[in-house]
Nucleic acid binder design. Structure first.
Lengths: 130, 130
DNA sequence: AGTGCCTACTTTCTTTTGGAGAGTATAGGG
DNA sequence: CCCTATACTCTCCAAAAGAAAGTAGGCACT
């Protein structure tokens, strides 16, 4: 019952340290700014082309976009479809796994929207006495 | 009704682009590997001292730990308490805001645990044909 | 008195990562 | 014949991160 992780999260359950290590690695991989922002775009907007994503994700460079997309593809979060036409057309689309990650991050977007002002105030308070 | 963001997340609601920019900035700040890992430690383990956190967070350098803790303090996610004793003793403890962020990320931990294997398989498949 | 320890940082130096901008291949249009 | 459009790819430089040693200040031991 508790040797396999299932949907309910019990913080008191003992966790296999190897699993914890792997989870930490995966979190490290997936919890980066660009991955999150790309994920958001693909969630809201569905299938996208490279340049379109570049325009939609604020401030990403082409290099980082390519790199992020490759990493996400490798992790099975999205599929890359190349249409052999000229000029080239490449489409990126979330997999079910990618969608499920998007849903998992949903709480974070909600939190960010809800707590923007609290963070802004905390920063001002902190900076005031520095 | 819809000019202010509240708890329910409606992906079809029009979003003020300024809010969206701020949310993206905040996500960029908060969604970094070290912040997440420190947050996890403080969530599971409660109040911690500097060295203890350093030991518990796999692979963090002292520099990054100091930097991450300062940034989190500035954002109001944790409080730093200095006990004027020798040797020095400094304790870090999540605020309510920090806890709420931890809860928001809860879905991501669950996702990571649940999907470790899928990601591992996706990677092997990807690497196999590279 | 001197040596060393403890903690929470700093500092310095090197390596890694990220961004700006130009280059590449290809076919169709002018 | 050159231009455009697309999805990269490459090069170069700046910024960020890691490793390792240093700092402060009192306390305990010899």
């Amino acid at each position: 019952m508790s040797n396999v992780k299932n949907m309910s999260y019990d913080p008191n359950a003992p966790v296999d340290p190897r699993v914890e290590t792997l989870v930490n690695e995966l979190i490290g991989r997936v919890a980066d700014k660009w991955t999150l922002l790309v994920l958001e775009e693909l969630e809201d907007h569905g299938t996208c082309r490279f340049t379109e994503l570049g325009r939609r994700v604020p401030g990403i460079s082409q290099k980082m976009l390519t790199q992020t997309l490759r990493a996400m593809e490798r992790d099975g979060l999205l599929v890359r479809t190349v249409h052999p036409v000229v000029p080239p057309k490449v489409e990126y689309c979330l997999t079910d796994l990618g969608h499920s990650l998007g849903e998992a991050f949903c709480g974070v977007w909600v939190w960010a929207e809800a707590n923007l002002e609290k963070v802004a105030r905390a920063r001002m308070a902190f900076d005031a006495l520095a």
